[in-house]
C-alpha cells in the first residue's frame, strides 16, 4: 500500500516536470524558427539584389564608375548610356533638404509638447503628429501635386515640379519620425539637468538652446538620420511631384528624378535579364547600400548617447 502511494507520488512528479521542459523547448524552437526565417529572408534579399545589381557590371560590362558618375541616362538607344548621377543627386538633395526643413520643426514641436504644454501636447498633439505617419504616401503625393506644385508654379519660375516640391512633401512625411524621437529624448532628460541651468539664472530659452539641445543632440541626430533614410527610400509621393526628367536640374523648381522614382517608372517597361533591367537593379543596390550606411550611422549615434 505504502509502496503504491510512493509510486504514485513519483509518477505525479514526473508528470509535473515534463510539461515544463516541453514548454521550454517549444518556446525555444519556435523563436529560433522565427529568427531563422527573418535572417534567411534578409540575406536572400541582399543576395538577390546584389547579384542582379552587380550583373550589370559583370555580365553586361557596364563600367561601375561610369554608372555612378555619368550624367546621361539613355537606356533605350542603340548605344545606351547609363549615367545614374542625376538620380543619386536627386535622392540626396530631396531627402537632405526635407530633413533640413523637418528637423527644426520637429525639435520645436517636441519642445512645445514636453516643455510648454505637457498635458495638451501628450493627449492631443502627439497623437495628431503620429497620425501623419499613417497617411499613405500616395495621398501625400496627390496633395503635393494638387496644392504644392500649383503654388510653386505661381510663385517661382518653372513648372512647380522638382526638388523643392519633392522635399516639401517628404518633410511632412518624415516629420512624425523626427518629432517622436525628439519628444522621447526630451522627456528622458534627467530632471536635475534643467533645474541646474535655471538655478544658474538661465532663462527657459537659454536652457533649451544651451543645455537641452546639446545634451539630446545624439538622439536628435538619430531622428534626423532615420527621417533621411525614410525620405531616401520613399518612391511614390516623390515621383508624383518631381517631374522625372533624368538630368541634374539648375534650380529647385526644375524637373528631375530620384533613384526610387527611376526604378518605379521604368521597371514595367524592361525585360528581365536585359541590361536595361539589370541597371535598375544596380540602382536598387545603391539604394540598399545607402540604407545600410544610414543604419550604421544611427548605430554609431546611439552608442554615443550613453556618454
Amino acid at each position: 500500500m505504502e509502496r503504491s502511494v510512493n509510486m504514485e507520488r513519483s509518477y505525479n512528479k514526473r508528470q509535473e516536470a515534463k510539461p515544463h521542459i516541453a514548454e521550454e523547448w517549444v518556446g525555444k524552437i519556435y523563436t529560433l524558427i522565427c529568427i531563422a526565417f527573418l535572417v534567411i529572408t534578409i540575406f536572400s534579399m541582399v543576395y538577390f539584389v546584389a547579384s542582379k545589381g552587380l550583373s550589370t557590371f559583370i555580365v553586361n560590362g557596364v563600367n561601375a564608375f561610369d554608372l555612378l558618375t555619368g550624367l546621361k541616362w539613355n537606356p533605350d538607344i542603340d548605344v545606351p548610356s547609363f549615367g545614374a548621377l542625376p538620380f543619386i543627386f536627386g535622392s540626396f538633395s530631396t531627402s537632405i533638404l526635407a530633413a533640413i526643413i523637418a528637423a527644426p520643426l520637429g525639435f520645436c514641436a517636441a519642445v512645445f509638447i514636453v516643455e510648454l504644454a505637457p498635458k495638451f501636447g501628450r493627449t492631443f498633439l502627439q497623437p495628431v503628429i503620429e497620425l501623419l505617419a499613417g497617411i499613405p504616401s500616395v495621398v501625400y503625393g496627390f496633395v503635393g501635386l494638387s496644392v504644392i506644385v500649383p503654388l510653386f508654379r505661381d510663385l517661382f519660375p518653372g513648372q512647380g515640379i522638382g526638388i523643392a516640391a519633392g522635399a516639401l512633401v517628404l518633410s511632412v512625411m518624415i516629420l512624425p519620425t523626427i518629432t517622436t524621437i525628439a519628444t522621447d529624448a526630451l522627456s528622458e532628460l534627467p530632471a536635475g539637468l534643467k533645474e541646474g541651468s535655471y538655478a544658474l539664472g538661465a532663462t527657459r530659452w537659454q536652457t533649451i538652446y544651451r543645455v537641452v539641445l546639446p545634451t539630446t543632440m545624439p538622439q536628435q541626430m538619430t531622428g534626423i538620420v532615420l527621417g533621411i533614410a525614410r525620405a531616401f527610400g520613399e518612391a511614390l509621393a516623390v515621383q508624383m511631384v518631381i517631374g522625372n526628367a533624368p538630368h541634374i536640374p539648375h534650380s529647385l523648381f526644375e524637373s528631375t528624378s530620384t533613384l526610387t522614382s527611376a526604378i518605379t517608372l521604368s521597371m514595367g517597361n524592361t525585360a528581365m535579364g536585359s541590361v536595361q533591367n539589370n541597371v535598375l537593379w544596380s540602382l536598387a543596390l545603391i539604394l540598399m547600400l545607402m540604407t545600410f550606411v544610414f543604419v550604421f550611422v544611427i548605430r554609431f549615434l546611439e552608442g554615443r548617447k550613453k556618454l
Binding site: G192, E195, G196, A199, P214
Partner: peptide, 9 residues
C-alpha cells in the same frame, strides 16, 4: 542639488 547635475560639457 541632491544629485550632482553637471551639464554634458
Amino acid at each position: 542639488f541632491q544629485r550632482p547635475n553637471p551639464f554634458h560639457k
